[in-house]
């Protein structure tokens, strides 16, 4: 073993900047995925058949093909098809957001269906309109049940975000590769960013725990 971490010291600021680069698009991807996922879940449990069909087809496609393929298609074919020179950053948000919305919609759908049917009937019997019922009564209770699954999805997304290095986006992973080829030593920088990914996931896990505790208030 000849490990020498002293050599990566000058590169540490460069690699740390990757945290921000990664967090930035992961953050937007999670927002996009959550919003779209909620909408798709509502389509799936709703009574409008074409929307249900659309949501099912959407989920099937995004879960049935590799994420890296979706990313490449968005990054390389957008300029070719539309002439718009899409940035790696935007491509990453879109690919990860669209992809995770498929998974999130399944999690939320299952969560909604697990809420006691009596809750919906009680709200209906009180004359509460559908939208308000979903927003105030059903979704908050569903969220409580699905929070662990949802956090899991966010953690997966954070880790899988390393795939964006393949389209040249300077995220944590890509930076480790850049440093590696500069130094002709790969193990140290890879280990270093590995530690950072682990810290980020731990952070997310902790945030999830705080949320869970808050939602458990009513028990």
């Amino acid at each position: 073993m000849n490990l020498d971490f002293s050599q990566i010291v000058p590169y540490i600021p460069f690699m740390l900047e990757g945290i921000w680069a990664t967090l930035k698009f992961v953050f937007f991807a999670i927002i996009l995925g959550s919003i779209l996922g909620t909408i798709l879940a509502l389509f799936k449990i709703g009574s409008i058949i074409p929307l249900r069909w659309f949501a099912d087809a959407y989920t099937s496609i995004f879960r049935g093909t590799p994420l890296i393929l979706q990313l490449m298609i968005i990054y390389y074919s957008t300029p070719q098809l539309t002439g718009y020179d899409i940035s790696a950053f935007l491509s990453a948000i879109l690919a990860f957001g669209l992809n995770s919305s498929a998974y999130i919609s399944e999690i939320i759908r299952a969560g909604i269906q697990a809420v006691d049917k009596g809750q919906m009937e009680a709200a209906q019997a009180l004359g509460v309109p559908y939208r308000a019922m979903m927003k105030d009564i059903i979704l908050p209770q569903a969220l409580k049940n699905i929070l662990p699954a949802l956090m899991n999805e966010f953690i997966t997304l954070t880790k899988e975000s390393a795939i964006v290095s393949t389209i040249g986006y300077l995220d944590l992973m890509r930076r480790a590769q850049v440093v590696g080829s500069d130094l002709f030593r790969n193990f140290e920088p890879l280990l270093f960013v590995g530690l950072i990914y682990w810290c980020m996931v731990m952070g997310l896990t902790m945030i999830g725990r705080v949320f869970e505790r808050r939602l458990k208030q009513s028990d």
């Binding site: 809750q119 009680a122 209906q124 019997a125 009180l126 004359g127 209770q141 409580k144 939602l215 009513s218």
Partner: peptide, 18 residues
């Protein structure tokens, strides 16, 4: 509107737990 004028009480209460 019609349901708002009709109250219903269920066997299993169905209070909003949150």
């Amino acid at each position: 509107k019609i349901r708002q004028q009709i109250g219903m009480v269920f066997q299993h209460f169905h209070l909003f737990p949150h």
